[in-house]
Write a protein that binds this DNA or RNA. Structure first.
Length: 111
DNA sequence: CCTGTGACGTCCC
DNA sequence: TGGGACGCCACAG
């Protein structure tokens, strides 16, 4: 990676996800909004290409519905749920997360 | 170079 | 209230 603008986009997304504090989650659209110049799909695509060896809390990224999205490559969504529980994030009866509480940046951003 | 697809989001019925 | 279809942008073949 030298100076490829596309690669910077990935790095930007990875960095943004890495900024998510423990115990909080962010949505694809939110990450896309913070990064800008990209749609929510690119965020998911970037995370899909993410390597396990990279220390990025990809499990803290979910969709606007507050639930874990299914990926075509592997069914790690179950493992993701366990990781989120380990982070202190609770799920509802419908396998959904209360974004009103765990959403990042969270209410702290708005007065 | 062009086409297809994808860990989503939003609008419409 | 719920389900379906379209759109955005980047990457891979």
């Amino acid at each position: 990676m030298k100076n490829s603008p596309t690669n910077s986009l990935y790095q930007r997304i990875y960095t943004m996800v890495d900024q998510i504090p423990e115990g909080y989650v962010a949505t694809y659209g939110q990450i896309a909004n913070l990064v800008g110049s990209c749609g929510a799909r690119q965020v998911g695509y970037a995370l899909a290409a993410l390597h396990d060896e990279i220390d990025v809390p990809w499990h803290r990224v979910i969709n606007s519905q507050g639930c874990i999205s299914m990926r075509t490559r592997n069914d790690n969504h179950q493992d993701q749920r366990k990781r989120l529980l380990s982070e202190g994030i609770n799920f509802n009866d419908h396998e959904t997360i209360n974004l009103e509480i765990f959403r990042w940046p969270g209410p702290g951003k708005a007065p």
